[in-house]
Simulated assay, not measured.
Amino acid sequence: MITAREALQRLQEGNRRFVSGTSRLDGLNHQSRRSALTEGQEPFAIILGCADSRVPAEIVFDQGLGDLFVIRIAGNIVAPSQIGSVEFAASRFGTPLVVVLGHTQCGAVHATLEELMRPSPTPQSRNLMSIVNRVRPSIETLMETDLRHDHDALVEHAIRANVRASANQLRHGSALIEELVDDGKLLIVGAEYSLETGMVDFFDGMPQD
């Protein structure tokens, strides 16, 4: 298995190919790859991303079958099932890198901000509110700053605050993950995908040179 730094570099290189339109996926032999993967898998990175249809991790990072262990949920939030999924991949496959991948114009963040600014008179679905309530703590404090007067800036900061909160929850959400991080066997970073440019900006928890 490659190191976390190597995994990160592989994702960055793949995203650059995606942005430049030089994806290598079309040239892969999916049939032979699919056959090889029936014996097992060794994903080199875990991606906890948003369920938004515009942010498919394999395409955004130009990776193929078996390369990524992808967990998708609205708002890239962290709940017990997501923690368990990360634990499973990290411990079972030795995957060294977790990327919490948010994105611009995130609907879950928008819904949370709307709820904070103008609570709906009609009760929202309990299931929908379970997502909003997990996003809420990371961005509530932003409403107490001058950002509340600049909606676009507020949304930008809220999206990144939500990514940071999810990454931090993963780092401290289980004894197993904490142990892997402390032993240098797992790196957890936060990133944001731009719907406008296709670029992924890694901004939280990056290793220091």
Rank of each mutant, 00 (worst) to 15 (best):
residue 114 E to A: 10
residue 153 A to L: 12
residue 74 A to L: 03
residue 188 I to M: 07
residue 84 G to N: 13
residue 162 N to T: 08
residue 51 A to D: 02
residue 26 D to R: 15
residue 20 S to C: 00
residue 86 V to A: 13
residue 76 N to P: 05
residue 117 M to Y: 00
residue 18 F to L: 06
residue 73 I to R: 11
residue 9 Q to W: 06
residue 55 V to Y: 02
residue 83 I to E: 12
residue 150 D to A: 09
residue 171 R to W: 05
residue 81 S to V: 15
residue 1 M to E: 05
residue 88 F to H: 15
residue 175 A to D: 14
residue 23 S to G: 04
residue 135 V to D: 04
residue 91 S to H: 09
residue 20 S to A: 14
residue 67 D to G: 12
residue 121 P to R: 08
residue 153 A to W: 02
residue 76 N to E: 13
residue 155 V to M: 12
residue 14 G to V: 02
residue 184 G to A: 11
residue 8 L to N: 03
residue 202 F to C: 11
residue 150 D to M: 00
residue 170 L to M: 08
residue 88 F to Y: 15
residue 36 A to C: 03
residue 43 P to T: 03
residue 124 Q to Y: 11
residue 55 V to F: 04
residue 9 Q to F: 05
residue 23 S to R: 11
residue 73 I to P: 00
residue 81 S to T: 15
residue 59 I to S: 07
residue 114 E to R: 13
residue 126 R to M: 15
residue 44 F to E: 04
residue 39 E to A: 15
residue 107 G to N: 02
residue 187 L to H: 10
residue 190 G to F: 08
residue 163 V to C: 09
residue 199 M to S: 12
residue 149 H to G: 01
residue 195 L to Q: 03
residue 193 Y to T: 09
residue 37 L to H: 04
residue 129 M to P: 08
residue 50 C to K: 07
residue 142 L to V: 10
residue 64 G to T: 02
residue 82 Q to T: 14
residue 57 A to K: 01
residue 92 R to A: 14
residue 8 L to H: 06
residue 183 D to G: 00
residue 176 L to H: 06
residue 59 I to R: 01
residue 82 Q to S: 10
residue 207 P to Q: 07
residue 137 P to T: 09
residue 103 H to T: 03
residue 90 A to S: 13
residue 192 E to C: 14
residue 61 F to E: 01
residue 23 S to L: 04
residue 122 T to E: 13
residue 87 E to P: 12
residue 195 L to V: 02
residue 114 E to P: 00
residue 167 A to W: 04
residue 48 L to Q: 08
residue 45 A to Y: 10
residue 131 I to T: 13
residue 97 L to S: 06
residue 95 T to D: 07
residue 121 P to F: 05
residue 110 H to M: 08
residue 90 A to W: 06
residue 18 F to Y: 15
residue 91 S to G: 01
residue 29 N to Y: 00
residue 57 A to V: 04
residue 193 Y to G: 02
residue 149 H to C: 00
residue 134 R to G: 01
residue 102 G to H: 12
residue 103 H to V: 00
residue 158 A to D: 04
residue 114 E to V: 00
residue 43 P to K: 06
residue 160 R to L: 01
residue 110 H to S: 03
residue 97 L to R: 09
residue 161 A to N: 07
residue 175 A to K: 13
residue 208 Q to W: 00
residue 34 R to V: 02
residue 148 R to E: 11
residue 204 D to L: 03
residue 171 R to Y: 05
residue 150 D to N: 13
residue 4 A to L: 05
residue 199 M to G: 06
residue 6 E to F: 01
residue 99 V to N: 08
residue 41 Q to E: 09
residue 118 R to A: 14
residue 101 L to P: 09
residue 57 A to T: 04
residue 21 G to H: 04
residue 192 E to S: 13
residue 2 I to F: 03
residue 36 A to R: 10
residue 70 V to F: 10
residue 201 D to C: 02
residue 19 V to G: 05
residue 85 S to M: 08
residue 7 A to T: 07
residue 126 R to D: 14
residue 115 E to Y: 13
residue 101 L to H: 11
residue 43 P to N: 06
residue 149 H to D: 11
residue 203 F to C: 05
residue 22 T to S: 13
residue 61 F to N: 02
residue 157 H to T: 05
residue 142 L to N: 13
